[in-house]
Design a protein around this nucleic acid. Sequence first.
DNA 1: CGGTGGACCTGCTGGC
DNA 2: TGCCAGCAGGTCCACC
Length: 273
Amino acid sequence: MPELPEVETTCRMLEPRLRGRSIAGVRVHESRLRQTVDARALGRLRGARVEGVSRRAKYVLIRLNGDRLLVVHLGMTGHLTVVDPSDERRDHEHVRFALDDGMELRFRDPRRFGLITTARGAELPDHPLFARLGVEPLSDAFDGAYLRALGKSSRRAVKAFIMDGQVVVGVGNIYATESLFLAGVRPGRAARRLTRDEWDRLAEAIKSTLAAAIRQCGTTVNSYLDPYGEPGAFQNSLKAYGRTGAPCRACGDAIRRRVIGQRSSFYCPTCQR
DNA sequence: CGGTGGACCTGCTGGC
DNA sequence: TGCCAGCAGGTCCACC
């Protein structure tokens, strides 16, 4: 499900429900996620107080007192919610945290591509999950010059290049597809063939697409739901993703589908060069 | 070294 | 109705 806008939405909605709360108990029902869940490490968080909720790449960082972090990655189908403990536990609700206000934070993930672990804030820069991550696309460090510096000698398809988390984080299949449409660049172009102008347009397209999707609380094409159980709205604004054969909203030509790097890609053969 | 292909999972959809 | 193939928002690792 989740790319940067969905993770950002999840963080923003969790923050007011978690900040100031303490963890009263932890239950792990299924530990076989992307990484095996360390139930003892999670259990040591009992008594910890939530200071805030933030995001790095597609990781949710629940910041706790004492420089501790509860780190959650939603994978493809992960979901965090705060519910009443009397709500019947659903299939695939793998971890539950009792909170001191009587509510419960639950992590649900049918495909189990997500992960949930602990870390120290100070160690994040050297942490194996975080050490090699690229720049945040909404930061000033990310622009056309940055993309070009890394991509100008790469033979990879530009779509695979911008989905590489060591280059820029948070850009998954939907937003890579939409950003390339907005920039007018075909997804299969070799990165090193892009012009300076195209790199500039692509960086700006990534920023504006992600920002617009955050304003719409993310994209729900399959299963994504925010912590209140509500879908996003950006699926109504998609111009290319999932629109095989449908008319391009700009020129009317039929949108095409092509697989690049084992991922479905969609583009307009007229608007994208 | 850069780049690709497969692996990890469950669930849904569409065709027969 | 049942069965099967193909598809799904992510990441990691082995291999060329």
